[in-house]
């Protein structure tokens, strides 16, 4: 609505410059510098040391574990997210708002607590501790625990992106599909999901980025066993605590690159999603 107006707000130029510079200085200090520090420190000992750090067996194991845990977490939260969004957005039932609030719960929980709960359930002194021990199954201090903690902290991401959009889109197209003889799965895959594809992708990307970068929750359940139960963020911590700074930053730089790619994807998708929302609003107003 302000597209046709000139950009001046009536703020005098000196004020505009001062505020802009102040804002940029703040961002420079708090955002740009840390980012630069990661790459600066990573290359402090030169390229060879950099490559060595990220290709060394423990680092590779950490990368593999990160990819595995994130992959499983994203996949399972994706299935859940679609199921929950279908139930919430396309049907009317009591207690819907309660369900939506519960889905947001993991956001309100500190990562450390997210790890703690699984230790309480599956740990040696936890609920199932004895049973697991008897069957020689390890969850806490092993990969399954890491996967569980990762699932917990990324739980709401996909659902949160899908639900509002699917609610705004209503059920007309799905009903039309049913009236034309389509079955439930056909309606889901041919009509509903294509209509939300950008938001779905956005949710997956947020979920993946968070899953790969999670530290606190995974740290609690992991046991920090080198080469076995360290994800990339944990490996960074291990290296750092050994004063092996350049190597720590080298691995960290991989995560930073991932973050930058994520941000670029987010920007692109946000643009696409805004288009979808504005088309929805245009439809709502009368037309010829």
């Amino acid at each position: 609505m302000n597209a046709l107006r000139s950009d001046s707000t009536g703020d005098p130029a000196p004020l505009r410059w001062a505020l802009t510079l102040l804002a940029l200085a703040f961002l420079g200090l708090f955002v740009v510098l840390p980012l630069a520090a990661v790459f600066g420190q990573a290359l402090a000992k030169g390229w060879e040391a950099y490559w060595a750090a990220i290709s060394e067996p423990d680092a590779l194991a950490a990368i593999r574990l990160t990819l595995l845990a994130s992959g499983i977490a994203v996949l399972s939260n994706l299935v859940f997210g679609v199921a929950a969004a279908w139930a919430i957005a396309k049907f009317q039932f009591r207690g819907k708002n309660v369900l939506i609030t519960l889905i947001d719960l993991p956001f309100a929980v500190s990562p450390v607590i997210a790890g703690l709960i699984y230790v309480l359930v599956f740990g040696a002194r936890g609920w199932f501790g004895d049973w697991l021990d008897a069957h020689d199954i390890r969850i806490v201090f092993a990969v399954p625990g890491i996967v569980l903690a990762t699932i917990f902290v990324t739980f709401p991401f996909v659902a949160r992106e899908l639900i509002p959009l699917m609610q705004s889109q209503g059920t007309d197209e799905e009903e039309a599909g049913i009236s034309l003889g389509a079955g439930g799965w056909q309606v889901l895959f041919r009509i509903t999901l294509p209509n939300v594809k950008w938001s779905l992708l956005y949710g997956i990307i947020l979920c993946t980025a968070r899953a790969m970068g999670e530290f606190g929750a995974v740290s609690v359940v992991s046991g920090h066993i080198r080469g076995q139960t360290n994800t990339m963020p944990l490996h960074v911590e291990v290296l750092y605590n050994e004063y092996n700074f350049a190597a720590a930053f080298a691995v960290a730089s991989l995560l930073a690159i991932l973050a930058l790619v994520t941000m670029a994807a987010m920007s692109l998708l946000e643009w696409k999603m805004r288009r979808v929302y504005s088309e929805l609003q245009a439809e709502a107003s009368p037309e010829a």
């Binding site: 007309d172 197209e173 009903e175 039309a176 599909g177 009236s179 389509a182 079955g183 009509i191 088309e279």
Partner: peptide, 17 residues
């Protein structure tokens, strides 16, 4: 779906994608 009726919705409900 079983009745073989053709329903034309008030707001068309065309599949936007």
């Amino acid at each position: 779906g079983e009745r073989r009726v053709g329903f034309v919705f008030q707001h068309y409900a065309l599949f936007r994608n």
